[in-house]
């Protein structure tokens, strides 16, 4: 569904290569987490995967990017976006501004695609309910809290039902309950066959939902594997990505963690390990 072949990228008018020689294939219906320190190139990667690089940002791309069977470079942007959604980092800038209520804001993308009104209404209602923002439907999107705006931004993409959904730190301003809601919704999308790429700092929640984790450091893909191996890796702390509380607890427990057992990244793994290690 998403395929990068030795992709490198440099922004226009800048000397540094921001993404270097990245190759990976994400099959349909996989939920992939992307972790990396600030400035690693995560946002840039998200824009490559959704076609805004090079279509909006220009710059120099080498290598190939294929999304949903289409070469990103050779497909016009309007065609690309009909099947790829991007939720970008700052929810304030994600709001269209064209609409004065949350419900209309959610419908904006559907209007542009020419979706018939009846279907539009039912999709908007479903999204409002799914993200538990139905009570905000008539409010102005600009009078919401950052977290609520983030939910609206996510909803405005979900409602378009793209086959590939890329989200750039979509829960940064949400409380744990709100983030939980988003993670659950993304899990459901995966079950429906949507390919999800999720850039996220909340490692513990990521470990619960992701099928696979990419670790991006200095524009290089340093690790690519299941959460239990990537998130438990020692290097993560050195790269400034941090580790889950469960991994940290097992490391701190030192000899109490069963010898030879992989470090835990979820509550269940930690509980099982400590139960085994207990005298």
């Amino acid at each position: 569904m998403i395929r990068l072949e030795s992709l490198s990228y440099r922004y226009a008018e800048t000397p540094t290569t921001v993404l270097r020689q990245i190759s990976l294939t994400i099959p349909k219906g996989q939920l992939v987490g992307v972790v990396g320190p600030s400035g690693a190139g995560k946002t840039t990667l998200a824009q490559v995967m959704s076609g805004f690089i090079p279509h909006v940002f220009g710059g120099e791309v080498t290598g190939a990017v294929t999304v949903a069977g289409r070469s990103v470079r050779n497909t016009p942007l309007p065609l690309l976006v009909s099947d790829i959604g991007l939720v970008s980092q700052n929810p304030f800038n994600q709001l269209s501004g064209a609409k004065f209520s949350v419900a209309e804001e959610l419908a904006f993308g559907l209007e542009n695609l020419g979706v018939p009104r009846g279907e539009m209404v039912s999709r908007v209602d479903e999204t409002l309910r799914r993200l538990r923002i139905a009570h905000l439907a008539e409010r102005s999107p600009y009078q919401l809290s950052g977290g609520q705006q983030q939910l609206v931004a996510i909803g405005s993409m979900m409602v378009m039902r793209p086959g590939v959904l890329v989200l750039d730190e979509p829960t940064s301003q949400l409380d744990p309950a709100g983030s939980g809601l988003v993670f659950d919704a993304l899990g459901e999308l995966r079950e429906r066959g949507v390919t999800v790429v999720l850039i996220e700092h909340k490692l513990e929640q990521l470990a619960e939902v992701a099928d696979r984790i990419l670790a991006l450091v200095d524009g290089e893909l340093r690790m690519d594997g299941p959460p239990s191996t990537v998130l438990a890796a020692d290097e993560l702390a050195d790269w400034g990505i941090g580790r889950t509380r469960f991994t940290a607890a097992a490391v701190a427990a030192a000899t109490h963690w069963p010898c030879g057992r992989p470090l835990p990244v979820t509550l269940a793994e930690a509980a099982a390990g400590f139960a085994e290690g207990a005298p």
Binding site: A12, E13, T14, F57
Partner: peptide
């Protein structure tokens, strides 16, 4: 403004 913005 950064040059890259002007050249956008």
């Amino acid at each position: 403004l950064p040059a890259r913005f002007r050249q956008r």
